[in-house]
């Protein structure tokens, strides 16, 4: 269980990026966090990853308080961030340095096969396409078998076809060990295709606005009417979240803001 309790972040320059964000995420759940720019999505993800410390509240994974990167928590960034001096295989095995070489080789080989890049094992990262590179990044994050995998707009730099391909592929890979996935995105389609729950955030300061549960069976048909219904719901929530006249659903302290206009 990943528990976020009143997580807040104020940067040293005074920017109040995130305020009192709370959520409980059971193992294996897929969460999509969506919201306009400046709503603290990435801040939240970096706090869960332990890359930046929250300035208020706490992140706990199975009773361990997260203040720095944790072995059970992996992260995939918007860019693949492969190490250009390592081959594709060595990039995937980067997080396995502590394991004996034969086990490492075996795991890397199976991961390569799983993402369909066995023939690229000894290629340099610069020789990969954007989609291939991001698949290597996914493999690198999954190979240490994390319990929680964080994804920070992982497919936003890719073209629409590759993106759709990788979304399906991600679900495939997720089904192997069913880690908790927390995905930050600004793509409504992506959120509805992947997530069990969509958390809609609102900006300035970033906070939770609405939670939408997507109880659709997988694999989800992007063209079905039900899919559209959920998409519309998320879109409506997004629109409302950016409308300053709408009060926070979960808010207890918006009296000041209600009088703003």
């Amino acid at each position: 269980m990943l528990a976020l309790k009143d997580v807040g972040k104020t940067y040293p320059n005074g920017v109040h990026a995130l305020e009192r964000f709370s959520a409980e995420i059971p193992p294996g759940e897929i969460i999509a966090i969506i919201g306009g720019s400046g709503c603290g999505k990435s801040t939240l993800l970096r706090a869960i990853a332990g890359l930046d410390r929250a300035s208020a509240g706490s992140v706990t994974l199975d009773n361990a308080v997260i203040t720095s990167p944790h072995a059970k928590i992996g992260i995939i960034f918007q860019e693949p961030r492969l190490l250009p001096w390592l081959s594709v295989a060595d990039n995937i095995g980067f997080g396995l340095a502590d394991l004996p070489a034969d086990i490492r080789r075996e795991r890397v080989a199976s991961a390569l096969a799983r993402v369909g890049l066995t023939d690229k094992a000894s290629a340099w990262p610069r020789e990969l396409s954007g989609g291939q590179a991001q698949r290597v990044a996914i493999a690198r994050a999954l190979v240490p078998q994390p319990e929680v995998l964080l994804l920070d707009e992982p497919f936003s730099a890719l073209d629409a076809f590759t993106r759709r391909d990788l979304q399906d592929h991600l679900l495939d890979l997720w089904a192997d060990a069913r880690p908790t996935l927390i995905l930050v995105t600004h793509d409504v389609d992506e959120a509805v295709v992947l997530a069990d729950r969509v958390l809609v955030m609102r900006p300035r300061p970033g906070r939770l606005f609405e939670t939408i549960t997507i109880n659709l069976a997988r694999p989800r048909d992007r063209k079905s009417e039900l899919f559209d219904t959920f998409k519309r719901r998320v879109l409506t929530a997004l629109d409302r979240s950016l409308d300053r006249s709408v009060r926070d659903v979960t808010d207890k302290s918006s009296a000041g803001e209600a009088m703003w206009w």
């Binding site: 990853a49 720095s68 990167p69 960034f77 190490l83 001096w85 980067f94 997080g95």
Partner: peptide, 27 residues
């Protein structure tokens, strides 16, 4: 910085960070 962050995510120690990230990047 983004590459260094990859080292942090995989919890490299100081010497490992130098050997596995900084040295090859600087070469």
């Amino acid at each position: 910085r983004k590459i260094v962050e990859v080292g942090r995510v995989f919890r490299l120690s100081g010497p490992a960070m130098i050997r596995r990230i900084l040295l090859p990047a600087v070469l």
